[in-house]
Design a protein around this nucleic acid. Sequence first.
DNA 1: ATTGCTGCAAAACGTTTGCACCTAT
DNA 2: ATAGGTGCAAACGTTTTGCAGCAAT
Lengths: 148, 148
Amino acid sequence: MKNEKAEEIFRKFLKEEKNRITPERFEVLEYALEYDGHFGADDLFILMKNSKSRVSRATVYNTLELLVQCGLLSKRNFGDNISRYESNFKRQQHDHLICVDCGKIVEFSDSRIFNLPEKICNDLGFELDSYSFNIFARCKDKKTCKKS
Amino acid sequence: MKNEKAEEIFRKFLKEEKNRITPERFEVLEYALEYDGHFGADDLFILMKNSKSRVSRATVYNTLELLVQCGLLSKRNFGDNISRYESNFKRQQHDHLICVDCGKIVEFSDSRIFNLPEKICNDLGFELDSYSFNIFARCKDKKTCKKS
DNA sequence: ATTGCTGCAAAACGTTTGCACCTAT
DNA sequence: ATAGGTGCAAACGTTTTGCAGCAAT
């Protein structure tokens, strides 16, 4: 069994928040951490369905929100009005650049951003929860940039 | 008649792109510039419907995209999977802080962000199109922070 | 025993599309 | 004349909800 650490974190979170510990929720966690890259809630549901899982759509949506709340996943939006999730587990802070022509997503880390959200919150009288910084751009190399 | 300058810009854009110049499109422009703050496409459609306008939903959606393309509006997403628009007309560059408790949106300008998207694009081999920088936070002053 | 969670299906929501008619060019 | 835009309604894809049964506490 993999990701024992993540399961541990999730179990602790569920207990603290007085949410029930169910096998379905851990099944969603398993699949979410296994997923390579960003995924929509429905992508995960369909993947699980195809893998003969019996977990329902409602449970997938519900559980993904819980996993965001306990910090194991991040919820992103790349401008197409679909919520996408991404594992935070063992990953460093990063932001996203999306090619508006081919849809490619590049992850980057830039030290100039690191504590900017925190500073801005302090200036404005808020407590930071999270932030999203997306750059929309075009590949300079047109050979590898294919419209889908 | 107000916003002659914006109409001028829109007319020029439509001509250049070989899009037709129709009264419906200018009616959408008029309402969009008049709208105070951020609005969803459907908000605008309903407002226009209530004002006895005969413009259709499809035309509103279509025209708002054109207005984004010609730079008169910005399209934003504040994490709830709804596209929101905002007039760029006579406004300076700014970003948004959204209170996750009460939904309040605060606009801010921070010089540390100004040319960051451009620089990052250069580093990564892309041409900047646009960017979105949203901070999600909580009001420190709980008296003015009401859950909706 | 009590809630809360689940699966399922249906509904809701914002958005897009198909089509027949119309209109700017 | 003709390509493109319009209004309308229906379809779409994602997400949420209602409900009866089930299972964790």
